[in-house]
Design a protein around this nucleic acid. Structure first.
Lengths: 112, 112
DNA sequence: TATTGACACTCTGTTTTACAGAGTTATATA
DNA sequence: TATATAACTCTGTAAAACAGAGTGTCAATA
């Protein structure tokens, strides 16, 4: 059975990835606002995505405060595509043999 | 932001729900085979779905061994539908303002 | 230029979740 | 009757999610 990328298949991270896919790039605070999540939790999930090279980090010195910008990497974008495909496949499975009991050895009826 | 049902948004449970949606009903062992998961793990995930009334349990005495059949309840079916809709909404978000920095107070350039 | 405040993170500890494997009961088969 | 096996269930451990406190930096004000 098709496996769902556990890195993406988690509420917060799915939303994170989806948001980044749409937004292109976002700062820590933007993500925090969007996802309405605690600092620590956002940090830990971002770290996971960064560790897997799903997310790129870019320090932006142009603004008054140095900002850290997060964005989906090509790897992350591909993983997300793949993940969406897996979901579609899984959730539109129309007929996986209606309750086919797989091979099972003959079962005798309970003694009558 | 739309929340993804954490009960369904977990690799094993998503697959469980998807499989049951397609198969109608399945025994413990069938699920175990399909999902390739340990007994204990399957049990704990099933328990969660049952506790939430997403899954119905039916004891079937007609077979040689009393079999326990698991199936999606109406609640579960509705939750799954809802979940799929939420996913679609989330994953096709086409333009959530490309990196719009939300309102932020005026920032002066770093002293030149 | 010291002070206060707020923003942007990061670190640490606690709670919750996922998981594997051992244990239990009951039914076949030898 | 003994042995094996299917169908669960229980329990302990490992991993993940999470909140909040801590740290450093900038910037506005006095």
């Amino acid at each position: 059975m098709e496996m769902l990328d556990p890195l993406l298949h988690q509420p917060l991270r799915t939303q994170l990835a989806a948001f980044l896919a749409g937004a292109g790039e976002a700062t820590f605070s933007e993500l925090k606002r969007q996802l309405d999540v605690s600092d620590g939790n956002l940090d830990s999930h971002l770290k996971k995505l960064i560790a897997a090279d799903y997310v790129n980090v870019r320090k932006d010195d142009s603004a008054a405060r140095t900002q850290t910008c997060y964005a989906l990497s090509p790897t992350g974008r591909a993983a997300l595509q793949n993940y969406i495909l897996a979901l579609q496949k899984l959730l539109t499975m129309d007929n996986p043999e209606p309750s086919a009991p797989a091979k099972r050895r003959e079962t005798k009826m309970k003694a009558a």
